[in-house]
Amino acid sequence: MSNAPVQGGGAGAPLSTKIANLVIAVILIAVAAAAIASTGDFPKTLLAADVGPARFPVIHASMLIVLSLILIANTLRMPTIVDDTPPVGVIGYVGVALGILATAVCLVAMAYVGYALATVVYMAALMWLMGQRSPLWNPVIAVAVTALIYVTFQSALGVPLPVGSLFE
């Protein structure tokens, strides 16, 4: 996704980028404001020479709000140009969403069935998602890679991998 510099507002940006800039800036302002609000619950420091636990978060969040407002101002000032990069399309975004979903499912599954089973299914699913549809090679590659990672981490380096609550 192309995006021109936002300083000065001399160069333009596609409409989609401008909308994204505005949405992200508003979200960041909301996050920063929430952070500042929650510092009100922080206790006062007992040390007379200390600034307390709230000072730095408040400074960072305030700067984030100021910079987000600058981004909004620059975005509104800059001209809209025609986007010449090919759009990702619905299929592309669905692919990404399914990949993220598969990772989340793998994370949850790992807690119950452990590393090995969750990773084999996860890898096979991702390969299928990426267009590798061989009914023979997908499981073979998934099992081989899972085993290689297991041997490297668990056996060679002694780093324990999750067993899964169903098998503990």
Binding site: M123, M130, G131, Q132, L161
Partner: peptide, 20 residues
């Protein structure tokens, strides 16, 4: 490696490496 194999390997490494 084809990206269709490499990307799942990268994501699996990300998951396991982070857990470690």
């Amino acid at each position: 490696m084809p990206k269709s194999v490499l990307t799942p390997v990268i994501l699996a490494l990300c998951v396991v490496g982070t857990y470690a």
